[in-house]
Structures are given as C-alpha cells and as structure tokens.
C-alpha cells in the first residue's frame, strides 16, 4: 500500500513527512458506537466498523436488520441517533465549534459529501435529463467543471459501463440494467473515495443482474475506491469482497474474510441465515 502511494508521487513534490505516523493507517470510514432509532424503534444498536482506503466490504444480513440505514448514514441521508462516523479521518455528522462537538451544519456536510457516493436500489436517475446530462450535470454544477471537461469525463465513464452509445436517450427508454449502469457512472464521475452500493441489483429482472454485477466487478478491480456493498448476492459478495459483515437485529454479529463468513460461519445466527439462503 505504502509503496503504491509513494510511487504515485514520484517525480512530483517531495512528500512531506507525516507529523502524525498514526495517520498512515487512518481508515477511510469509521463508525463508532452508532445507533439509530426511528421513533421507538431502535434499528441500529451500536455499530463499530472500519473500512480501509480501497477496501471492499460486503454487508449481508436478513431483511430489516438495518443495512440500508447504515449505508444511508454514510451518505448523510440519515442522521445517527448516537455515536460518530468518520470519513477520511474527519467527523461526518459533527464538527468542532468553540472547542465543543456540535451537529454538523450544511456547509460541513457539503464538504464531507465530496468523499462519498451512493448507488440506489431504484436507480433514482433524473427522468427529465438525457443519459449524458444525468452524468454531466453534477460535475458541472457541483465540481465546477467546464462543459467540455464534464462531457469528456462523463463519456469515458459511460464507456466504462458500456453505454456511451446511449448518450441522448432518456432514462424512461432504458432497461433496468442500463439505468443502473448509468446511475453507477453518475456516481463514479464525482470520484468519491468511498461508495455505498445498496442492493443495486435487487430491483432488476434476473436476466439483467449479470451486466450490472460485471460493471461493479470491474470498478472493484480498479481498486482505489472503498466500497460498501449491501447485497443479497452471496456469490458476488464472496467473489469481490475483502471482508464480509453480517448484521442482524441492528448489530454486527460476525465479520471476516469471505471464506471465514461463508465457509466457516461461527455464530448460529449466521449459520441459520446462510442455510436459509442456500435452500431458497
């Protein structure tokens, strides 16, 4: 990891020695004692989780266990009830004000969101924009790129997901798989450091799942972006994840390498979950 970082800077400026050596192993994402309640219902009961830069973490677990909620918090769509989340060493939902920790304001959230992206189960493409504009609009408005720069980035990203021949189409005229691939390109073009994929294939017809997984596989192989893959596709999780998290009832019950989780599940909950999954 270190060698790669230094290589990337070779020929550029001499890297400044890091005053804080601990920062070298700084995780990209860190949940600390995070809970979430909707009214009386406590959905997350204390999540501690770290993701390293570039790490691919698959999150599995039964329906209603709080997987989506966990991912949405990282995208700042849901505020933790208790606990903190750090992204790239900085608090996401809190900030310092006069030496005290206070709730983050919109400006802070806006700055933090630059590092995070998300792909949704139901795509959420902008129906009033062409495919190309869906992907260029945010780079232009949010990142301030020129039209040419944004289009260049967008076209190359749409090429990566195999849709650079559909630039002028509208979302309504695309298949579900194509829509989801546009949505992936739209999120990627912002170049986040960590991206949440929330069951991105579960709204698709079975025959369209493969093309989307293929795209995600390619992104994962490129390696530099951390990915939180909330999924019910166990084979896929096993194949591309560095680490698998099994959550149930608002807690992380077990985590480990794909082999540990799928081949040697320790907890009874996970064993039952996998068994039920296989018999389906």
């Amino acid at each position: 990891m270190n060698a790669v970082v230094i290589d990337a800077f070779a020929g550029a400026e001499v890297p400044q020695p890091d005053p804080n050596p601990a920062a070298e192993v700084k995780p990209m994402v860190r949940y600390k004692g995070v809970t979430k309640s909707f009214g009386d219902l406590q959905v997350l009961k204390g999540i501690d989780l770290e993701m390293q830069p570039g790490e691919k973490v698959a999150v599995i677990g039964p329906s209603g266990s709080g997987k989506t909620t966990m991912g949405r918090m990282l995208m700042t769509l849901e505020e933790p009830t208790e606990g903190t989340i750090e992204v790239d060493g900085e608090l996401l939902w809190h900030m310092q004000e006069k030496g005290r920790l206070v709730r983050a304001n919109e400006k802070h959230l806006h700055r933090m969101r630059c590092s995070v992206g998300m792909v949704f189960q139901h795509f959420n493409l902008f129906p009033h924009m062409s495919v190309l504009r869906n992907v260029t609009e945010a780079p232009r408005k949010v990142l301030g790129l020129s039209k040419e720069e944004a289009e260049e980035r967008a076209v190359s990203m749409l090429g990566k997901v195999g849709l650079d021949d559909k630039l002028k189409m509208y979302p309504a005229n695309l298949s579900g798989g194509q829509k989801q691939r546009v949505a992936i390109a739209r999120a990627l073009v912002m170049r986040p450091k960590v991206m949440v994929f929330d069951e991105v294939t579960s709204a698709l017809d079975p025959e369209l799942v493969g093309e989307v997984l293929e795209v995600i596989r390619e992104i994962a192989e490129e390696g530099d972006m951390a990915m939180m893959l909330i999924t019910h596709e166990m084979d896929f999780a096993k194949e591309i994840a560095d680490r698998v998290i099994f959550g149930a009832d608002g807690l992380i019950v077990e985590q480990g390498t794909p082999e540990e989780i799928f081949d040697n599940p320790r907890s009874e909950r996970l064993q039952n979950f996998l068994q039920r999954f296989r018999s389906n």
Binding site: M75, T76, L77, H110, R113, C114, V116, G117, M118, F120, H122, N124, L125, F126, E137, A138, K141, V142, A183, R186, A187, M190
Partner: peptide, 11 residues
C-alpha cells in the same frame, strides 16, 4: 429518491 440522488451527488 430524486432528493436523495441530489444529496448523494452533493447538490
């Protein structure tokens, strides 16, 4: 979902 997509893109 449109609001959420806009937030996710940091609008």
């Amino acid at each position: 979902g449109q609001w959420e997509a806009a937030t996710a893109l940091n609008y």
